[in-house]
Amino acid sequence: MEKIFKTHPIEAWLLIIIIATSAVLSMLSVQYFTLVNAFDLLNSISINVIFAVGLLVVLISGGIDISFAVAASVIQYVAFYVLSYLGGGNWFIGIIVAGGLGVILGAINAGLIHYFRIISIVVTIATFNIFFGLLMFLTKGVYLYDLPDWWANRVIIFEHEMANGTWAELTLPAVIMFGAISATWFLITYTSIGRQIYAFGDNPEGARRIGINVVAVQFIAYGWMGMMAGIGGLMQAHFMQEIVPNALIGRELDVLAAVVLGGATLGGGRGTVMGCVLGVLLMAIIQNGLNLLGVTPFAFKAIVGVIILLAITLSNVSFVELRAYLRMKRGQ
């Protein structure tokens, strides 16, 4: 246990806070610690987790992507038309199309960043505006309701009837979420390019000198983000059963906050899939808990804001520094 605190302090802390919060919530609300609620929680965080693991890879590479949520909306529309052109499609084709479109949009970011030496925040703020502007301009803001049946109907992977007659259901997005988590974990832990992404984010100049393939690193990082944005977009449309052009706008900053809460930094070279998932989960549990406790939804965001602000403040004040500070005070 002590070792985990040393090697992965952020993950360990998040886990403790999640367990503590859960313990408090299960005392305050009988509904909290039920299978129904657990599955609801998993279903509801799935889309954010899919986005988050994508963003994680970009952050590890030392970049940032502001455009992914808008890119997901663009992909929803384009995929809708591509799939109807292909005669409706199915889940398999859907994921390929959405993921592929995402890779293309990610590659646009990567290309601008790599070939023109523009920093990622500038590029993705620009593409954010380009994607969103063109989307609203070309679609004129219309909603799409007539999704193909496979896309709009809920897919239940696992269900279980509870004693009181309610159903605990695990739906497709949750399963896809687990796929995205494992794939990303495999990418950044076990593939050579994944380790190169870490190395590049950690020390770009050193990476160049030992001959790391910088082009591949950039394209895979932003391509991965794009792919996850596409798949997340597909799942969000499935979840809502409609496509709304501005449904995802603003999501980028929420996801960013969660990923950073999970220990990734804006400097690159740091972050784990575990931390990233726990970050999203913690934010979801707090919202879920507030919901169960009957707090008005309007207050959710304020409370979440306070928690993130506290978390960021506290996580940056290390106990070693605190001790040194107290010692210094005494020395005066």
Binding site: A257, V260, T265, L266, I312, T313
Partner: peptide, 18 residues
């Protein structure tokens, strides 16, 4: 705390919006 301003102001944004 030397926290990154993007994160601090992001949480302030979420707080203000909330």
């Amino acid at each position: 705390t030397k926290a990154h301003p993007i994160l601090v102001s992001l949480s302030m944004m979420i707080l203000m919006r909330g």
